[in-house]
């Protein structure tokens, strides 16, 4: 007889209780053994390989860094603008694979000017093949909207394909993480990298647009399309991210289309009434200079767009485009 807490327990009862307790302890031990993971969760590798976009830029040539051409016909103005910089042969060599990154951010019609003009994209593709003797031209973007709809409804997909380009839509396997060495925001971030991995040259094509958050969307903001993940978080620090993009991407050439400028309600617009005809097209090897001139088409000053000064300070280019002695022309 055992007395505990005043309760009398018989031998049989005691043995049963001891047995139950033992079984419970045993079950816990067995469960722990079965669930035990000797390796533990895999720690994130510190040595993970981060991708870096190649430097696509070409050597600078005095007086041939930026060209500004006035005219209504984009095909003619882009031909002239590139000619003034030394011709497409300066930028595209025979056998090159050229990646063209137009702004195809939205599934909206060309008439709204929210995306790169299809005829302009097609003409640049044509130039790369005919004058530059490119082996292949890739036209690609990572739109904010559904990519297929964007390339279809903007007219860019069809125009690029008909001009002989390969249109590449974003797929998960084409993204890789990257870190910008001097960057504050681009740290271990997924970037639409695949199409550029096999390219020798990179050409950006962007319309001049008002942008509710950034003030303006032009050639530097066009690189925003390379960012993956929930990139909208960068809108909280839009000036820094645009400046960092200008450091991350070193293009061969940018083409800034100010033929029709979205003056209001950007970046999507939504009405032809948002557009103003400025009949200006800029080609440049310096994104910062191109956008600094582009700002004037939106009736803005360089100081109105802080990311321009930030990019200049980071060494991405100059806001003093006049110091580059722009080559100018007017197409009748």
């Amino acid at each position: 007889m055992i007395e505990a807490n005043g309760e009398k327990i018989g031998r049989r009862k005691l043995l049963m209780r001891v047995g139950k307790a033992g079984a419970a302890i045993g079950a816990c031990g067995l469960a722990s053994y079965l669930l035990y993971d000797p390796t533990g969760p895999e720690a994130r590798s510190e040595t993970i390989e981060l991708a870096t976009l190649p430097d696509f830029s070409v050597p600078r040539e005095a007086g041939q860094t930026i060209s500004i051409v006035q005219g209504q016909d984009r095909v003619k103005t882009v031909d002239k603008a590139i000619e003034l910089l030394g011709g497409i042969e300066r930028f595209v060599k025979p056998g090159d694979v050229v990646a063209i990154k137009p702004n195809v951010a939205f599934a909206s019609p060309p008439i709204l000017g929210a995306t790169a003009n299809p005829q302009l994209v097609a003409e640049v593709v044509r130039l790369c093949y005919s004058g530059g003797k490119a082996k292949k031209v890739i036209v690609t973007d990572n739109p904010i909207n559904d990519p297929t709809s964007c390339f279809t409804l903007s007219g860019v997909g069809k125009a690029a394909s008909e001009a002989g380009a390969e249109v590449v839509l974003p797929k998960p396997h084409l993204f890789r993480r990257t870190t910008l060495a001097e960057g504050k925001l681009i740290r271990d971030w997924p970037v639409f990298f695949g199409p550029f991995e096999r390219a020798d040259k990179l050409i950006g094509i962007a319309p001049v647009k008002n942008h509710h958050r950034a003030g303006a969307s032009m050639s530097m903001k066009n690189w925003y399309g390379l960012l993956g993940g929930r990139r909208n978080i960068f809108h909280q620090d839009i000036n820094t991210i645009i400046a960092e993009l200008s450091m991350m991407v070193k293009p061969t050439l940018v083409i800034l289309d100010g033929t029709e400028v979205m003056m209001t309600n950007g970046p999507t617009g939504g009405s032809v009434s948002d557009l103003r005809r400025a009949n200006t097209l800029i080609a440049s090897t310096d994104c910062v200079a191109a956008d600094s001139y582009g700002a004037t088409l939106l009736d803005l000053k360089v100081s109105d767009l802080p990311y321009l000064a930030q990019a200049e300070k980071a060494g991405a280019g100059t806001t003093d485009y006049e110091s580059l002695k722009p080559a100018r022309a007017t197409i009748g």
């Binding site: 990572n142 974003p170 998960p172 993204f175 271990d188 971030w189 997924p190 993940g229 929930r230």
Partner: peptide, 12 residues
């Protein structure tokens, strides 16, 4: 949300 899933890019 942590920038680790590129699949999120391009999803409409």
């Amino acid at each position: 949300r942590f920038g680790t899933d590129p699949v999120a890019a391009g999803v409409v």
